[in-house]
Amino acid sequence: MTLTDHLIRAHHTIMTRRSNISSKSEAETSPTVEPLDQKGSDLLKNLKLTFAEYSETEVSVSLDMVVLRVEPERLVDVCELLKSNEKFLFNYLSCITVVDYEEQEELFEIVYHLVSIDYHHKLTMKVSLPSNSPVVPSIFKIWKSADWFEREAHDLFGIQFKGRENLPPLLLYEGFEGYPGRKSFPFHDYEEW
């Protein structure tokens, strides 16, 4: 076996290369909001079907993102379903973001970005938490990639993850006080050492 045999070359060829270019320049003259593509609308349909009986969830569309809003109590169930259900197969958790709306609405929003490598569709999942007790179930057991993203959210925003207590600091040093990601953390007036 030669060394190059180890490399399976999966060549991707766009057959309609020229036609793509012409359609692009037509769109240029009239910029419009990118609607959901075929994959996105299929996903939206499937989500609406599957979560019809879940009263705690809500499906919507923003720009080209399909957004699923989930109550924290149902998060683990929903995640397990999204990962294992044949219609979704979200096998890759891309990212966990915390958005601080403490001043306006007294809540934190946790945003999960999921991608299916098999179907190439993506989903944005949002969970709102009250800012006085930001506790959310950990999904580390479902996707291992949640590990450091949850620790980062714990470090910078003080989000508590149920099932993962006593998280050691990841980005900050041992003994750092306060949550520097939050809007309420002073930008300049604090002592570094």
Binding site: H6, L7, I8, R9, A10, H11, H12, T13, I14, R17, N20, I21, K24, V115, I117, H120, K122
Partner: peptide, 24 residues
Amino acid sequence: VEDVRVTDPYSIYERFDFGIPVGS
């Protein structure tokens, strides 16, 4: 086989013809 340039194309990458090298 996962390359964002091909599976979720951005900019003008879908116009080009290129392979995704994959290991085993």
